[in-house]
Simulated scan of single mutants.
Amino acid sequence: MTTSRRGFLRFAMGSTVVAGGLQVAGAAAHAEPLHSVPPDHIGIQLYTVRNIMATDPQGTLGALGDIGYATVGVSGLYGHTPEKFREMMDIGGVRAVLTHTSWDAMNANVQRELEIARILGVRYVVVPSLPGSLRTVAGYTHAAAKFQEWGIKCRSAGMKFLFHNHDVDFVKADGKVLYDILLEQTDARFVNFELDLYWITKPGYDPVAYFERHPGRFPVFHVKDMAANGSFEDLGYGTIDFPRIFARYAQSGIREYVVEHDTPKVALVTAARGHDYLMKVRF
């Protein structure tokens, strides 16, 4: 796979030069000084490449390392033990910065989930969604209390707890945006947020407004672009104004920029474009 993969990556990276160049040219018109995304904090959520991870996890992790990714967000172990998966990441030249684990798994055995996270070597343990049955003020209030409990346990284990949003988290119940309950009823020492920039933008909410109201609580971005018709798009080919969002790096608390695309046409092309964009974007 090595030879063909390298040829594929040369094609994938070559296909992004024009788009990336336009982005830099546009950014250059902004006032100095310009800032960039730290290369060692550019990652990709493995959900983006899940189809090829399922058939060739070692080759896929190696391909991501060849593209230049420093980190990955783990989305399942594809039938491997945590120890084996950690070994494969090491061989592929990437490190896990976060892992997604379910609400149900955390409820069933939080210590087991933290042990898996420890073996993987992650900094962040992330619950990526809540059950639909909790989509009420009382349900999100309950979730906030559980997050607080898990966040304390994560901190004791040397990790941090985060919640990842979808658009449904921004619906209103009894006049209250449900997502706001999680922010308002948790302690920033123990609970923070992996902000999916697509899923907050699509329902019409502004990430910057959240940074202003809740500074420092968004250490991870899922950097996901949106086409004009509202569907998913490769980074730099869509409509989301990432430089405007990234420019608030001090206020947001951002540390990790994690590329994601839910339905890529060709996963490694999407991955290459995402890395290329984050390497070149200026803000």
Rank of each mutant, 00 (worst) to 15 (best):
Q58N: 04
N109W: 09
F85C: 02
R86K: 14
L22S: 12
R123M: 03
R123D: 09
D104Y: 08
L120H: 04
A27V: 01
S15C: 00
E113V: 13
H30Y: 10
V94F: 08
A19G: 11
A96F: 07
T16G: 07
V127F: 01
M13I: 12
I44P: 00
P131S: 01
H41R: 13
V94E: 00
W103M: 06
A70G: 04
T55K: 14
A28E: 13
A28G: 08
L61C: 01
G93V: 04
H41E: 02
Y69W: 06
V94W: 00
V127N: 13
A105R: 14
A108P: 05
L98Q: 13
H100D: 04
I91W: 02
L114Y: 13
L22Q: 15
H80C: 09
V72I: 14
Y124M: 09
R123H: 09
M88V: 01
Y47K: 00
G20A: 14
Q58S: 12
L134W: 02
A12E: 02
T101R: 14
K84I: 05
L46C: 10
T71N: 11
V125T: 04
V49R: 08
L22N: 12
Q23G: 11
Y47D: 03
T55L: 11
H35R: 13
P38T: 03
G68M: 08
R50Q: 09
R112C: 00
A31Q: 07
V24I: 07
G121D: 05
T101I: 15
S36Y: 13
P38G: 01
G26D: 15
V72Y: 06
G21N: 08
M53W: 03
L134P: 00
G121H: 10
